[in-house]
Simulated scan of single mutants.
Amino acid sequence: MVYSREQLMEAVSAQMPAKRWAHTLGVMETAVRLAEQYGADPVKADLAAILHDVAKYWPVQKLEQMIKDHGLSSELLDYDKQLWHAEVGAFVARQEYGVEDQEVLDAIRYHTSGRVGMTLLDKVVCLADYIEPGRDFPGVNNIRDLANHSLEEALVAGFESTIQFLLSRRQIIFPLTFMARNDLIKQLEANS
């Protein structure tokens, strides 16, 4: 079945509390704006944003089972459960909602962690998730300001905010986030 945008929004919103759906709507709006500003495909940005948290409120046991049963990135199981929904969400987007565009699937998959070699769409969706209007955490306004001038600068600030938050709580940090941050800094240095 091919889902219309409205059917997709209805199916996804039914899987989360109203507050998380409001977040998703904010990510959609922000992703489209960033896509238009930086030259990414706004239709793809909108689609990835609609689906980015599709599995966020699934029971942890279901997420874990899907990762194991479908050969998804099992290294995630050694890290924070907050990362699992992105990997499962990309799988669900393909299997249940018929999304075939690898760029969209990757933007969903890496919206929490980032990755080395982030595509423009990866950057847009990841950053939109950080700075959508409903987000309120220390430093978010600085990240929003940076987003007006540079996706990369804003994402570095976002990843550093996440890393500092995890460090302050003595939590394990997913290596891909460090690697994504470092790769973005290399990109910035190469372009300066």
Rank of each mutant, 00 (worst) to 15 (best):
Gly98Ile: 00
Ala18Ser: 10
Leu47Gln: 11
Gln65Ile: 04
Leu25Gln: 14
Arg169Met: 06
Tyr79Arg: 12
Arg109Cys: 11
Glu87Ile: 01
Arg94Met: 07
Glu6Cys: 04
Asp46Thr: 10
Met16Ala: 12
Ala86Leu: 08
Gln102His: 05
Lys123Arg: 12
His85Asn: 06
Val12Lys: 06
Ala154Val: 00
Glu103Leu: 03
Asn142Ile: 06
Gly117Pro: 01
Met179Ala: 14
Pro138Leu: 10
Phe178Val: 02
Ser4Met: 01
Val60Glu: 15
Glu152Met: 03
Pro59Ala: 01
Ser161Val: 03
Val60Thr: 15
Leu47Arg: 08
Lys62Leu: 11
Leu72Ser: 02
Asp183Glu: 02
Ile143Lys: 05
Arg20Leu: 15
Leu176Asn: 13
Ile173Leu: 07
Asn191Glu: 12
Ser150Thr: 07
Val32Asn: 12
Arg94Ile: 05
Leu167Asn: 11
Phe91Lys: 06
Ile50Gly: 02
Ala93His: 02
Val12Glu: 00
His111Met: 05
Glu6Gln: 13
Glu6Leu: 08
Asp101Arg: 01
Glu189Leu: 10
Glu132Lys: 08
Thr24Leu: 07
Cys126Gly: 12
Ala90Ser: 10
Asp80Gly: 15
Val27Leu: 06
His149Lys: 14
Asp136Arg: 05
Trp84Met: 04
Glu189Ser: 03
Ala107Glu: 00
Leu76Phe: 15
Gln171Asp: 14
Leu188Trp: 01
Ala40His: 04
Phe91Thr: 11
Tyr38Glu: 02
Leu77Gln: 05
Val88Leu: 04
Lys62Thr: 14
Leu167Asp: 12
Ala18Ile: 09
Ser113Trp: 04
Ala11Thr: 05
Gln15Val: 04
Leu184Ser: 00
Glu6Tyr: 07
Asp122Arg: 00
Glu100Ala: 14
Asp46Trp: 12
Val104Ile: 14
Phe178Ser: 00
Met28Ala: 06
Asp136Tyr: 02
Lys19Pro: 12
Glu132Gln: 13
Val60Gly: 10
Asn148Trp: 09
Trp84Ser: 10
Asp129Pro: 02
Val92Trp: 04
Glu160Asp: 13
His111Lys: 04
Ser4Ile: 00
Arg181Pro: 00
Asp145Leu: 15
Trp58Ser: 10
Gln95Leu: 09
Arg169Tyr: 11
His52Ile: 08
Phe159Asp: 05
Val32Ile: 14
Tyr79Ser: 15
Gln82Phe: 09
Pro42Lys: 04
Gly26Val: 06
Ile163His: 11
Thr162Ala: 13
Leu77Asn: 09
